[in-house]
Design a protein around this nucleic acid. Structure first.
Length: 300
DNA sequence: TGCCAGGTCTGAG
DNA sequence: CTCAGACATGGC
């Protein structure tokens, strides 16, 4: 916590920070003073492209936890995943190459599974700005605070802390009917009825089935945890945006249910499914935003 | 002001 | 198994 740890990471693939960090996978990143920053555990991580060399990423870390190692960061950011493979998987799908290029810097994060579970239990029938607020509120009210560069930051509460915090106080944070789900999830993890991290060694179907025993975790939330937290690259979460874009782009699935579309995506795109899902999600939301005249978000 | 939001759960047919 | 309604709240 004395000297902020400074690291530079070499980028072998394009990295679009806003599309990756603010693209609906993670909810605690924010853009401030030219840096992207978020608390990861008890450490605040700050990222920006090096001005003199866009192939390098500047990293600064400060907080109560130890700094992440270079390999931890590369792993978290998916820096060694070649997204070109996933873009290739979309060739022939009728998406113009020029449009696909808007997604060339997206990476699949490997977030903490617990944080991912919390975020996506909150996500049901909600929207990205609100999910972000809910997560922040929970960290502030139920998490431990620590210092980082002179400011106060709140870590997301561990399962046991959130279980102790309880459903009643969660209700007061305006998370609505998700409160009992989240409280129950916290209890299940705290009591070790489910080993979230351990799920990563199971096969996809087993891990998905176990996740779905958690209240508030249906097919879509399970797929998000599998993809964004446990790095199951064959996961294909289908939400309203994906449903819409897939139905429009692949007429043969237009009449299918979300569950069938998820199954279809998983098989069709195999190990690229999670990346393809991120790409489609990004393109669909980008189109919606520009229609509403919110200008374009040109990557860094 | 209403409609919709990164759905899930429950009960009915 | 499939499908409509309810659900708690707020963004736009």
């Amino acid at each position: 916590m004395s000297e902020p740890a400074k690291i530079r990471l070499h980028l072998d693939h394009p990295l679009d920070l806003p599309a990756t960090l603010d693209g609906g996978q993670a909810f605690r990143w924010r853009h401030a003073n030219g840096w992207w920053e978020a608390p990861l555990g008890r450490t605040v991580v700050r990222l920006r492209h090096l001005k003199s060399d866009g192939d390098k990423l500047e990293v600064r870390q400060a907080g109560a936890g130890g700094p992440m190692s270079e390999s931890d960061l590369r792993r978290y950011l998916g820096l060694d995943d070649p997204i070109t493979t996933s873009l290739t998987a979309l060739e022939g799908s009728g998406i113009p190459r020029g449009e696909l290029l808007h997604a060339k810097g997206i990476h699949l994060l490997r977030q903490d599974p617990w944080e991912t579970l919390v975020s996506f239990i909150l996500s049901q029938n909600s929207n990205v700005p609100r999910i972000r607020k809910n997560v922040e509120d929970i960290a502030r009210e139920a998490g431990e605070q620590f210092g980082s560069d002179g400011s106060v930051v709140y870590a997301l509460p561990e399962p046991s802390a959130l279980a102790d915090f309880g459903e009643e106080r969660l209700r007061k944070l305006k998370i609505g009917y998700r409160a009992p789900h989240l409280a129950a999830a916290a209890r299940m993890i705290a009591r070790r009825e489910i080993d979230l991290v351990g799920l990563s060694v199971d096969d996809f179907d087993t891990a998905r089935q176990v996740l779905r025993t958690i209240p508030g975790v249906g097919p879509k939330v399970a797929d998000c945890v599998l993809a964004y937290g446990l790095h199951f690259q064959e996961a294909f979460p289908v939400d309203t945006w994906i449903e819409r874009t897939v139905r429009r782009r692949w007429p043969e699935v237009a009449a299918w249910t979300r569950e069938r579309i998820s199954d279809w995506g998983r098989r069709r795109f195999a190990r690229n499914a999670a990346y393809v899902q991120l790409i489609l999600f990004h393109l669909e939301r980008r189109a919606a935003l520009s229609v509403r005249g919110e200008g374009n978000s040109s990557p860094s």
